[in-house]
Design a protein around this nucleic acid. Structure first.
Lengths: 139, 139
DNA sequence: ATGACTGCAAAGACTTTGCATCTTT
DNA sequence: AAAGATGCAAAGTCTTTGCAGTCAT
């Protein structure tokens, strides 16, 4: 027997919050963002709904950055950049992902492949400038 | 001033353990694996040395799987497969990574790019068979 | 002898979960 | 009324850290 799903104001608000941001929010970020409009929101509810949306395929995890799991409401394939300095996760819409790769892994290794991620690591522009400024101070 | 580095039996054992395995070990795995030959090893030491080796570039994190960070002593670029059923992390040496992509992100976005990861998610052969077997039992 | 490395255990950070209560259907 | 969703707080898991003792140089 399937478990039924009911409407909930907070569930809707959580999904809207994720969809309205391109920062790939963490649970904590969602919680603090919604806390002003939903003062009785609890962190447990955020986590429970993140799990709910993941199982639905409504959102996807883009990995753990600095100990916090980050989520994306855009499930169409696109690559990401992670700033190892400030933890920002940025969409790279101009860097295409090759859909054929999924089939290649399936054929060459015999695995059942659902999706793949292409993730770049480095320093974002903001942090690059910050570092140059810090080096100026030391010089 | 640089901080000097000294030899340590346990540090060596930890690196050897990572290098001897292709399973992309977690801290816990290393700890349990070495516990028999190094009964007084502590988990804190494992974590401290994992950090040490990462900062040296001797090892790299390949991400967090089921809440545990996983490490790889092979720092040459290669892609990975993560089984979402059993958590196995498997090298895909036959799926090449395009080194030009790093430069492409640098040029098109102006980020300082250090490396990139190509990771596939799905079900490994062992788990595929297990599921078929479970379905047989239900039929 | 100096200071790097370690064991131990406590603390920290993030996430999950049990239970009573509230909401949706 | 039935059952899903939530708040709250406790518990769980993984990782980090302070401190005293040990070991390499």
């Amino acid at each position: 027997m399937e478990r039924a799903t009911r409407y909930s104001k907070k569930r809707e608000a959580i999904l809207t919050a994720i969809r309205s941001s391109d920062a790939h929010p963490s649970a904590e970020w969602i919680y603090h963002t919604l806390k002003s409009t939903h003062p009785d929101l609890s962190l447990g509810t955020v986590y429970r709904n993140l799990l709910f949306f993941q199982q639905n395929g409504t959102i996807q995890s883009v990995g753990v950055v600095n100990g916090q799991e980050r989520f994306d409401a855009v499930t169409a394939p696109h690559s990401h950049f992670v700033c190892t300095s400030c933890g920002a996760v940025i969409d790279l819409h101009r860097i295409p992902m090759d859909p054929a790769l999924t089939a290649a892994v399936r054929e060459q290794y015999g695995f059942e492949v659902q999706r793949h991620e292409l993730t770049f690591y480095g320093r974002c522009q903001k942090c690059m400038q910050k570092r140059i400024h810090e080096e100026d101070l030391l010089a």
